[in-house]
Design a protein around this nucleic acid. Structure first.
Length: 568
RNA sequence: UGGGGUGUGGUCUAAUGGUAAGACAACAGACUCUGGAUCUGUCUAUCGGGGUUCAACUCCCUGCACCCCAGCCA
């Protein structure tokens, strides 16, 4: 069996990057070695768009028995912070990937980069330019007009060497001059018009402290770091397509290991934004509670919301990998989540909008312990007990005094099943002075214990419930999509105008079945008939239980209702 | 109007000259002690126009549309 066949068997869907890799393996490029890297800048939190890149780079390494490095791209001390380094590491681990002993920083290579710069200067391929930022922009030309050479372009090697030395030694102020590559000011590719290699920034770096006051630009850093680490396939987003000629130029002129840059389309997700800048705007403007607000598409937000790493990885696999820009339906993410949670989440009963029921013919003071299945998808998860008594809560919307067509739940005179308990029939509706239903009186059929009638009669609906005397109180936070429109950034005005005002609804008088006393952060529950929920990791306490709704269950009834409304 | 990219059902992705496939969504039905899950079925696609070929999503020509590039950000 050849290698090719092996890989085809282990891979799921193919994509253009895997095709390239398999061709490289076939032709024995780099002796068949595959080495990728994930290169975040530590200036913000990772989001699900990064998860796509993480799954790609780490996933490819796993699939082709290669390696993937984690390398922080920390070339701009004014924008980066250690806080972000830690969160990024945590998020990658949470997703289930590991970089082993290959944790690197671009700043690890500042000395080598400096030597590289010296080499280009000595080869007459780089020069110190004293033009001001404005002048540089002016000399660069425009998209349709070629640029013109800087008057400093023809400085001698010796002069450049001396000036660059002075730059390094801190003899100039910020912005006084820069080191530029001498390429071609008339290139139709703006990136090749003598790009900046080094700029002066008198600032403390989170790793190198005050050792440097000149810092290499992205272009003069990234490819060389890839090369130093012998990265074979350097994957980045489409935004860097135009930088590839420059990436290659530095590698060729420095005569170093030829890493290959390949670009793919970044992820866009409907009803949210995936841009660090925009997310930061939401955080700093207090539109959300922080980077890890459960409504945020950040990995920390999704984690707190109750998303599982498995569901996110599955999603990243299913969206595929291509160069066409696209907007993925968030429904796919939710599908992956439900699929995972359905298989693994234990079922419990909770009433979010309680309506009290008194079962008139059930003995006062009597308590029964009923068996409830933990997960119908997985019998090995066993059962647990739920207490039943004369007074219970059901969901307010499980009762309607004047039910429309297809409403199968409780209404006056109608019989329904209480999950795992009995059939009950509504005999009386109690209202307050305003006509609101405040309490129901029902009767139960003792022969239907466990939920089946010996005479074989059927009921159309099964309701979840909680015994009022045993219920535990909790706050439940219901989340909905962050924005009201599919693509907030495509709107004419500010994307923040499309924030969903109902993205968070807090319910304070919810009733949970008593087994939830033992709930823990990190366990995902299904509240039957409602959705998947998890304990709030920051705000929940013994005094005040707080749960987050991760995602609702699919709801046919909601669809029917919408259809009925539209008919009217 | 310089350069670099991208166009496949409503959405995302396959097919690398040989039956246009899968997933999500939608719709219909079956089943169900969750109106969940599961199962079955249905709908809808190669940007346009030429050409090469027995055969084109694929190759050629030509239009069109959309995206990216003029930071001392990455």
């Amino acid at each position: 069996m050849n290698k090719n066949t092996t890989y085809k068997e282990s891979s799921t869907t193919s994509n253009f990057i895997k095709n390239i890799i398999e061709e490289d393996i076939r032709t024995n490029k780099h002796n068949g070695r595959i080495h990728t890297r994930f290169p975040p800048e530590p200036n913000g939190y990772l989001h699900i768009g990064h998860a796509k890149a993480i799954c790609l780079t780490f996933g490819l390494a796993e699939e082709y028995k290669g390696l993937c490095n984690l390398r922080f791209d920390d070339t701009n001390p004014t924008k980066e912070d250690v806080e972000y380094v830690e969160s990024i590491k945590e998020d990658i681990h949470w997703l289930g990937f590991d970089w082993g002993d290959r944790l690197y920083y671009a700043s690890d290579y500042f000395d080598i980069l400096y030597e590289y710069a010296l080499k280009l200067i000595k080869d007459g391929k780089a020069y110190v330019c004293d033009l001001s930022p404005d002048e540089i922009r002016e000399y660069r030309g425009t998209l349709t007009k070629p640029g013109k050479n800087s008057p400093y372009r023809s400085r001698t090697v010796e002069e450049n060497l001396k000036l660059f030395e002075k730059m390094k030694n801190g003899e100039f102020d910020n912005g006084a001059c820069v080191l530029r590559a001498k390429i071609d000011m008339t290139s139709p590719n703006m990136n090749m018009r003598d790009p900046i290699m080094y700029r002066i920034i008198h600032a403390e770096h989170h790793r190198t402290g005050d050792k440097w006051c000149i810092y290499p630009s992205y272009d003069f850093t990234h490819g060389q770091c890839d090369s130093i680490e012998k990265i074979t396939h350097s994957l980045c987003d489409l935004g860097f397509e135009g930088h590839r000629p420059l990436y290659n130029w530095f590698i060729e002129n420095l005569e170093i290991f030829p890493s290959r840059q390949i670009e793919f389309a970044r992820l866009n997700l409907s009803y949210t934004v995936l841009s660090k800048r925009k997310l930061r705007e939401l955080v700093e403007g207090n539109y959300v509670s922080g980077w890890d607000d459960p409504r945020m598409p950040t990995l920390s937000g999704l984690r707190r919301r109750g998303y599982t790493p498995e569901s996110i990885k599955d999603f990243c696999e299913r969206i595929g990998m291509a160069k066409a820009e696209s907007l993925v339906d968030i429904a796919l993410l939710e599908h992956c989540l439900r699929e995972d949670l359905n298989k693994h989440a234990p079922r419990v009963m909770a009433v979010l909008h309680p309506l009290k029921i008194i079962i008139d013919n059930y003995p006062e003071g009597k308590i029964e312990e009923l068996d409830a299945v933990n997960n119908p998808e997985d019998s090995s998860m066993g059962t647990h007990k739920v207490p039943f008594s004369r007074e219970i809560f059901i969901e307010q919307n499980d009762f309607m005094e004047n039910p429309p067509k297809k409403f199968w739940r409780l209404s006056p005179g109608k019989e329904v099943r209480l999950r795992y308990a009995y059939f009950i029939k509504c005999v009386k509706v109690m209202k307050d002075n305003d006509g609101n239903v405040v309490e129901l009186h029902c009767t139960y059929d003792a022969k239907t214990k466990g939920g089946n009638a010996p005479d074989g009669r059927k009921v159309k609906a099964t309701l979840h419930w909680v015994s009022s005397k045993h219920a535990i109180d909790a706050e439940v936070r219901l989340y909905d999509r962050l924005f009201t429109v599919e693509n907030p950034l495509a709107e004419q005005d500010d994307f923040k105008n499309y924030l969903n005002p109902k993205s968070l609804e807090v319910l304070t008088s919810c009733k949970l079945e008593p087994s939830l006393t033992n709930a823990k952060v990190g366990i995902h529950y299904q509240f039957e008939r409602l959705g998947y929920f998890c304990m709030e990791s920051k705000d929940s306490s013994n005094k005040k239980l707080v749960f987050n709704r991760t995602v609702t269950l699919r709801d046919q009834w909601e669809k029917i209702q919408k259809a009925q409304k539209q008919k009217k």
